[in-house]
Design a protein around this nucleic acid. Structure first.
Lengths: 214, 214
DNA sequence: TTCGACATTGAACACGCGTTTAATATTAAA
DNA sequence: TTTAATATTAAACGCGTGTTCAATGTCGAA
């Protein structure tokens, strides 16, 4: 179903272009992931896909429609990878950052969270739902601390899990690195330690709050 | 050092209008905090300050220069409030969200972190430095869990502390609230619990990773 | 008063944006 | 081959942007 041409001998793919549309969409996802929706230009996508700006509109109708197409594409990609990793005992955080092939998809979703959109909000809602189910039902053998406000707890943990990606660029600068995978690997033990034991080791023994110095 | 004129007696607000410049700058901070730098327009700032767009440029030179002025202004404001709260026993997280007067300043800094700029990076670096000093020296009687990689640990905690503000709008939507202070108050106990005890209560007892179901 | 310096404005400029349009190139079908 | 349809492009349109400019308003100084 990919090609109906009789002789694909010396001719590659001249006119019939499902390839071109895919190339444009792929370039769009990359550009959106890199610069966000607002700052990404149709001309930039066209240049990255080595086509004219008009062709981008011709294939997808508008910049917003192109974004929707990208949303669906990324969603499918994420769903595939999530299904492929089902049952694999690891934290959701690692699930998102382990696979280098997923990095652009994750970047896209992160930018989608920052640049307000319905798709981005639906993704975040779904993510909080997922975390809440982990809290109530457990995840890969782990048991979560329970709370009366499981929704607020889930939202808190979801936000925490997304934080490193949100500030990825700032982290690169402050840690003096440019390898995202290596950086996330470096942060992973600290995240695990935080999730397992918290960040604080001992609490002050003064009972009433004030400007006291121990 | 503010003025070199000999008689600054009744010389306050004649023609040279510091009031107008302050009004513009205040409006600019609010607009930048609300919509971010890129999406904020000079015309929008001018409308909020009830002046003409040309006057904004006349007073600050350019949109970028206006942003720098806003950066300095917000930095000073934050420094003041931090100094005023020195010695007050509370977490750095709460330090940033407690005071409702600080909310716009915090929003501004958050947007500054997302929309890349030198000032935003310097602020983040400073923030990580602060957290690292808390880790090594303790904070308000609290003792942090130690790590060989204190820099990575500090970056991790700093990112976590900033996360709720970064996704404030998404949190509003997912929790069905429009009161930021109330929402942060709701999340506070979950954050404290996370920092004190972590998020996970028990770990699975299977020693080798796989697709096992407990 | 007159003058000069500054504040302030409305209109316009130059530019980049998303999008449209007319024209060309290419291919499948008749 | 001819024809219809689609892919593709260069150019331009309309719009919003940051910015500039000439004109007007305003107030202290002389």
């Amino acid at each position: 179903m990919r090609s109906t041409n009789p002789d694909s001998n010396s001719r590659r793919s001249p006119n019939t272009s499902p390839e071109t549309a895919e190339k444009i969409l792929s370039a769009a996802v990359a550009e959106f992931a890199r610069h966000g929706f607002t700052k990404t230009t149709v001309r930039g996508i066209a240049a990255a896909a080595e086509v004219s700006p008009g062709l981008v509109i011709h294939h997808f109708g508008s910049k917003d429609a192109l974004r929707s197409a990208c949303d669906e594409h990324v969603f499918e990609r994420i769903a595939e990878l999530k299904a492929a990793k089902a049952g694999y005992a690891t934290m959701a955080v690692q699930m998102m950052f382990d696979d280098p092939e997923m990095s652009t998809a994750v970047d896209y979703l992160v930018k989608s969270l920052l640049d307000p959109s319905e798709h981005g909000q639906r993704y975040f809602d779904h993510y909080v739902d997922l975390v809440e189910s982990y809290i109530t039902e457990g995840f890969a053998g782990y048991t979560f601390r329970q709370s009366e406000d499981s929704r607020g707890q889930a939202a808190t943990i979801a936000v925490m899990a997304l934080a490193p990606s949100l500030l990825e660029h700032r982290l690169h600068s402050v840690l003096g690195t440019d390898d995202t995978t290596a950086m996330m690997t470096r942060l992973a033990p600290h995240l695990l330690d935080l999730y397992l034991h918290g960040a604080l080791e001992s609490v002050p023994d003064n009972s009433q709050p004030g400007d006291e110095e121990p």
